Computed example of a mutant assay.
Amino acid sequence: MQIATSQQKISKVFKSGNSQAVRIPASFRLDTDTVKISQTEKGLLLEPIQDKPIAKSRGDLLLEVLSAFPDDFIEAVADRDMSPPQEREPL
């Protein structure tokens, strides 16, 4: 597998605990916490794994929750008595 790239950088390899690590320059920063590592003829290949779903807006989440309610429930809520509570003497 050959990948064409317009950028190349040199980085340091170092030991982190019992593992070997590579410092990734900021211009190659990955937008993920997890990568798949494959060994190729020319070296190692890192591929980002997008394990997090795309964040939904609060409005989208609300509409998703509301759409799960049956129609008769929504109608019952819309038709309920919305008058203020009775005023009573304090105890």
Rank of each mutant, 00 (worst) to 15 (best):
L46Q: 10
G59A: 11
S16Y: 03
M1I: 06
K42P: 01
D81F: 02
G43H: 04
E41V: 01
I49Q: 15
Q86G: 13
K9P: 00
K42F: 09
A21P: 03
K15D: 09
K9L: 05
Q2M: 09
R58I: 10
A26W: 00
A78S: 10
Q20K: 05
T34E: 08
S19M: 10
G43T: 01
L63E: 14
P90I: 06
P53Q: 07
M82L: 13
I10H: 15
D31C: 06
P25G: 09
F28I: 02
N18A: 05
A55Q: 12
S19D: 15
I37Q: 08
L46W: 05
S57P: 04
Q86N: 14
D51L: 08
D72E: 09
G59Q: 15
T5D: 07
F14R: 12
A68K: 04
V65L: 12
Q7P: 00
E41A: 11
S57T: 14
L46T: 05
A26L: 06
I54S: 06
R23L: 13
S19E: 13
D31R: 07
E89D: 12
R80E: 15
A55G: 05
T40L: 13
Q8A: 10
D79C: 05
A4T: 11
I24N: 13
E64A: 12
V77A: 12
V35W: 14
F28E: 14
K12M: 07
D51P: 01
S57V: 03
Q8E: 09
P25T: 05
D60Y: 07
D71G: 02
A21C: 07
S27D: 14
A76H: 00
T32Y: 06
Q39W: 02
Q39R: 13
K9T: 03
D81E: 10
S38T: 09
P53K: 06
V65M: 12
R23S: 11
S19V: 06
L30M: 14
E47C: 03
T5M: 07
G43P: 01
P85L: 11
D71W: 00
E75A: 06
I37P: 01
S57I: 06
I10Y: 13
V35P: 06
R88D: 10
R88A: 12
Q8P: 00
A68R: 01
S11A: 12
K52T: 11
A55S: 11
E64F: 02
P48H: 11
T32K: 07
I74D: 02
S67N: 14
D72G: 00
L45F: 08
V77E: 03
E89R: 08
A76P: 00
Q7R: 06
L91W: 04
I10P: 00
A21W: 03
P70C: 00
D31H: 09
K12W: 01
P84V: 07
I37M: 13
I49E: 13
V77T: 02
I49G: 04
I54A: 08
Q86S: 15
A21G: 07
V22E: 09
I37Y: 02
